[in-house]
């Protein structure tokens, strides 16, 4: 049987989907890590990005730090984090935390860049008008800069999420659940159908989440920012 047929067989076998180690259960685990990581990254990167974009301060540091973080290999960070944290933490957490650290590090640069660029790109005339009409600094940020930055903030989050979902497979290396299990276990047992099938499921999951986030984007971004051209 060729690889395609093997993959198809694995994907269409009901047994692959159900049960504790099935595709559905692993997808849920995968999504849990992914959203947790995205949330943590957003909690760090969005406020920093807003601050940098609004004040113009620390731009150099933010750009370079984000670039440096991007260059760090995920697998390396994972092993270092495990080695450092394993003796200090107990149970699942000792493995889960290192995996999350890797994913958060991965997600921070795109979210930071999107947020910062979005705020930075506010029309200077709109900002001047906002101040001139009597908005305080925080009101300018809240009422003008953040709503205007939403398209870029959302693109940052979506780019980050795609990377997280792809990379979250490495959690399986340190024995955690998620769709990475099929890749690691499939390789260990030379079950290539399972390996390739797992990869396909990861890709589909990433696609589905991106479509969901695109829907969210449509809800939170004002139509005024997407309608183009004078429609007199």
């Amino acid at each position: 049987m060729n690889a395609l047929a093997l993959t198809w067989e694995w994907l269409t076998d009901p047994a692959s989907w159900t049960g504790a180690g099935g595709i559905l259960a692993q997808s849920v685990a995968h999504l849990r890590y992914s959203f947790l990581a995205l949330l943590a990254a957003a909690l760090v990167a969005v406020p920093v990005g807003l601050w940098v974009g609004h004040t113009g301060r620390g731009r150099w540091l933010a750009v370079n730090a984000a670039g440096a973080v991007r260059a760090v290999p995920s697998l390396g960070v994972l092993f270092i984090a495990v080695l450092l944290l394993l003796p200090r933490l107990r149970g699942e957490l000792a493995f889960e935390l290192p995996a999350l650290i890797v994913l958060v590090l991965l997600a921070v640069p795109p979210v930071l860049a999107g947020t910062y660029a979005g705020v930075q790109a506010t029309d200077p005339a709109a900002r001047d008008a906002a101040r001139g009409m009597g908005m305080t600094g925080t009101q300018v940020l809240r009422l003008v800069e953040i709503p205007g930055a939403m398209p870029l903030i959302m693109s940052g989050l979506r780019a980050a999420m795609l990377q997280i979902i792809g990379t979250a497979t490495i959690a399986a290396i340190v024995g955690l659940g998620g769709l990475g299990r099929f890749l690691i276990d499939g390789q260990a047992s030379r079950d290539y159908g399972q390996m390739a099938g797992g990869a396909v499921v990861v890709a589909l999951l990433a696609l589905a989440v991106d479509i969901a986030l695109a829907a969210v984007q449509r809800l939170v971004v004002s139509p005024g920012l997407t309608t183009a051209g004078p429609g007199r």
Binding site: A126, D128, A129, A130, G132, M133, L143, P147, G148, S222
Partner: peptide, 18 residues
């Protein structure tokens, strides 16, 4: 003070999302 004074600028400076 600014809230009590009207302010109009060259490029209008409208808020695009509103």
């Amino acid at each position: 003070l600014r809230r009590s004074i009207g302010y109009v600028i060259q490029q209008a400076g409208l808020f695009p999302h509103r």
